[in-house]
């Protein structure tokens, strides 16, 4: 007995798929198409009257040292926050995995940061890391002026990286922990019988078996660090001081909505999109092949 419903008419099938297709079109293809169109034209600030300019927008961007600055800042931010978020999460998960009661509670507690909207998170960290009143004001009291994200570009970059990492540590932790717990207990015991201590077991047994999860999280973290960082930067530093935290996604917003350069911003978002696609492609092409052990 065939239980699956089949439709003789393709129209019914299309009708069923239509709501999703409309959603995808309205929220993905249409804006992307619009951005693509704007990137190759010159858009008036007050609307109306596009002029086709070909690759001029891109040429202008790529010859602008300020734009290259934002690319390198984005790279620093992406690598730094991914390293911290994944590293910390992995360490937490490895220690949690070793005989810990109530890991169910940990799972839900650690995922909460991920549910916090970036602007709220940014605001919280703005207070936490404030040089005059936050946690680090104690350090400033001992060595005056050593920490000030409002003046020092490096401090500002560190601040946004910490805030962003904090959000993703919990997310990564949950993936790492469930991956660790899916490693059969007897494998760890066998390694213990083979004379391997806890640290050695992590390195020889647990980490290699985590590689699929490591790879997945690497892709997610890098991608998200390029896209999800806007709210944090906007609330904490507004790209400053002196463009030290002007990430690509923030610059798009700034040039577009503050500078009213729609075409330049559209070209930037196309570049960002291509960059993210490229990074993901590179990761799949060169890292994934080292991942599978089965």
């Amino acid at each position: 007995m065939e239980k699956r419903a089949t439709f003789s008419s393709t129209t019914i099938g299309i009708l069923f798929a239509l709501p999703m297709l409309v959603l995808i079109f309205v929220f993905f293809y249409w804006p992307s198409g619009q951005a693509l169109f704007w990137a190759f034209t010159l858009e008036q600030p007050w609307g109306g009257g596009n002029r086709w300019v070909g690759f001029q927008n891109f040429q202008q961007l790529l010859s602008d040292p300020v734009y290259w600055n934002s690319i390198s800042r984005s790279m620093i931010f992406g690598l730094g926050s991914t390293a911290i978020a994944m590293g910390m999460a992995l360490i937490l998960a490895l220690f949690t995995d070793r005989e810990l009661r109530g890991h169910g509670a940990y799972r839900s507690i650690f995922v909460w940061p991920y549910a916090i909207a970036a602007p709220a998170l940014g605001l919280a960290f703005r207070f936490i890391l404030a040089p005059e009143a936050g946690l680090l004001s104690l350090i400033n009291q001992v060595w005056p002026g050593i920490w000030n994200p409002a003046l020092d570009g490096n401090d500002a970059m560190i601040a946004v990286i910490i805030a962003f990492s904090w959000k993703y540590i919990g997310y990564n932790f949950i993936f790492f922990l469930s991956a660790l717990q899916s490693i059969p207990r007897s494998l760890i015991e066998a390694a213990a019988m083979d004379g391997s201590g806890p640290a050695r077991r992590m390195w020889d047994i647990q980490l290699p078996l985590l590689t699929p999860t490591l790879f997945f999280l690497l892709v997610i973290n890098i991608t998200e660090s390029f896209q999800d960082s806007f709210g944090i930067v906007d609330i904490m530093t507004q790209g400053g001081p002196a463009r030290a935290t002007e990430l690509m996604v923030y610059k798009i917003y700034f040039d577009g909505f503050k500078g009213l350069d729609y075409s330049g911003a559209a070209a930037q978002s196309i570049i960002l999109m291509v960059l993210v696609i490229l990074l993901t492609f590179v990761q799949f092409r060169f890292i994934e092949r080292r991942v599978h052990y089965k």
Partner: peptide
């Protein structure tokens, strides 16, 4: 020790 499920390192 030899384990019931062999516990080989995959």
């Amino acid at each position: 020790m030899v384990f019931q499920n062999y516990a080989l390192y995959p």
